[in-house]
Simulated scan of single mutants.
Amino acid sequence: MINYFVKKMKHYKNIPIFIKFKKDKDFEYRLNFMIFLSKFFNYKRTNHGDKIEELIPSYLDNIIYYSDIGDIENTFCSNFNLDKIYKSYQIFSDEYSKDLYLSQLINYSFVGENSKGTLFLLYYSHIWNQYKKVENSIKDKLDNLFLFDLSNINIPIKLYYPYPYGLFSDFILEQYKYKNKVYVSEGDIVIDGGGYMGDTALYFANLVGKTGKVYSFECVDSNLNIFYKNLDLNPNLKDIISIQKYPLYDKSNQQLNFADGADASRIMDNGNLKVISISIDDFVENNKLQKVNFIKMDIEGAELKALKGAKNTLSRFRPNLAISLYHSFSDYYEIPLLLSEILYEYEFYFDHFKLGRGESILFCKAK
């Protein structure tokens, strides 16, 4: 839709040039148009649910008005390498991905309570009608966790989880599926990098069925304790999921220090949890896997390293990929550029599944 506006306003002479890019005037125009348009959209992040900060649409708020808060163009240039952004932008296979990619780069530049970018299509989507159904699926509470029964939205899964939005994103928005192009199918072998409490593993297991397998990598004990509880709640899916207590990395047998941050546990020099890494290539070889159909990664900034440890698997099996980009500014271009070098004859797509900064996913599909 944004591309429609860009084409319609192609000859509109009053769009300011905030950022010059002489290599490609069409890219320059689209980027500056996106910045210009973003100055008219303003979203507020609010506390919602159990002290979880999410941006949930409030239709009592006016989001369309001019505001130059945050100095978009200078903030953008200080956060990103423009040449690498351009190279990544060129990789994408459809106009939707290109538009949303530029919009999310703007949105990601805003750390505080204000959000920018052209996210109004998601903001006003009817999909939010389903969010209330996820909230209404809460049946019980265990400490700081809610017990969700998703059967009321025709998903035969029960699980403990700390807040509704994660499940809304996993099961309703389906953030690890790109339209009808990149998705998990029955019988697939899935590598689930970043298992957390088992939500994505259960999502994938429900799709692959008894003839498939999900290898879910999670190394943080506090998350694993809930993960095992969630498997017991779903005996029909339990045997499809194999928990691997390792962090994915470029090389195996490296000692890594993790800071336990629940859904944002990450490698840190002063982390108090010491774990031993494994690479995807070594895992595939050690377990003599005969195929890998899908790789998902949401591993809190270790995606680039983990992908470097999967080069043989990517070349041999040519799986579909869904890789999180939102853990650093540089991931938005370093990960697409790395994969464009590794993958031969692939299509690349981009989507974003949150009104806030998180949940940007790079999708890759073999032609």
Rank of each mutant, 00 (worst) to 15 (best):
G198K: 07
N136W: 02
K229D: 11
G261L: 14
N236M: 03
K238N: 08
E95T: 14
D188M: 02
K158Y: 02
N293K: 03
G70P: 03
L362N: 07
G358W: 11
K133H: 05
G356C: 01
Y246N: 15
D298K: 05
I19N: 10
S115A: 13
I106S: 05
S88Y: 08
A259E: 13
I153V: 15
K158P: 03
E300T: 00
T211I: 01
F33K: 10
S265Q: 08
V190N: 05
T211D: 10
L60W: 04
S279L: 05
S324K: 01
F227W: 11
Q90W: 01
I172D: 06
D298F: 01
I85H: 13
D298A: 02
T211P: 00
L338V: 00
Y163D: 13
L100I: 15
R316S: 11
N236W: 00
I91R: 02
L362C: 07
I69P: 00
E303W: 06
F348D: 03
K51T: 11
I335M: 02
L307T: 08
M1T: 07
K177T: 08
I240W: 12
L224T: 13
Y246C: 11
S125F: 09
F363I: 01
I361N: 05
N42D: 14
D83W: 01
Q244K: 07
K308C: 06
I56T: 10
P156V: 02
G117F: 09
G117T: 11
G301T: 04
Y4T: 04
S137L: 06
